[in-house]
Computed example of a mutant assay.
Amino acid sequence: MEIFKELHEITEPDPRTHMFHIYDQSLGDFREREISDVHRKLMEINLNEHVPDAIKTHFVTSKHLVLYSWFVYRFIPVAEFHAIASLEYALKIKTGKKKWGLKRLLAHAVKEGWVMDNDFLYSPTKS
Rank of each mutant, 00 (worst) to 15 (best):
E44H: 06
K103L: 04
F75H: 05
L47G: 04
R40A: 15
H8T: 07
K5W: 13
T57A: 11
H8P: 08
E12D: 11
D24T: 00
T17Q: 11
N118D: 10
L7H: 13
H82R: 05
Y122H: 06
L105M: 05
I22P: 15
L106N: 08
L67V: 05
D14K: 08
K92E: 06
P77H: 09
K111W: 10
E44T: 02
V51T: 07
T11H: 15
I35P: 13
I35G: 11
P15F: 02
L67S: 04
I3G: 14
F4H: 08
Y23F: 14
I45Q: 03
I45S: 08
A54V: 10
E9I: 07
Y73C: 07
L102V: 01
A107G: 15
E2H: 09
R31H: 07
V38P: 12
E44K: 01
I55S: 13
D117G: 05
A109Q: 02
K97M: 03
S86D: 03
E6N: 13
T95Y: 03
A90Y: 12
G96T: 05
R31L: 03
Y68W: 14
H8S: 11
I10W: 14
K111L: 12
V110N: 01
I45M: 02
P52E: 01
H50G: 14
E80Q: 09
R16I: 03
T125K: 11
N46W: 05
M43L: 14
Y122A: 03
H64I: 10
I3H: 14
K99H: 08
I55H: 14
K63Y: 06
L42P: 01
E112M: 09
V38N: 04
A109E: 01
E88W: 05
L67A: 05
V60N: 13
L102Q: 04
K41P: 13
S36K: 09
E88R: 01
R31D: 10
R40Q: 12
I22W: 10
A107H: 00
K126P: 13
T95E: 08
L7K: 13
L102W: 08
V72A: 15
S123E: 08
S36D: 09
T57F: 04
E88D: 07
R104W: 00
D24H: 04
Y122N: 07
E34I: 00
N118S: 07
F30P: 04
P15A: 03
K98P: 09
T95V: 02
L27R: 01
I22C: 07
T17W: 13
F4T: 11
W114G: 11
Y89N: 06
F71G: 00
S62C: 00
E2P: 06
L121C: 08
H18S: 07
E12A: 06
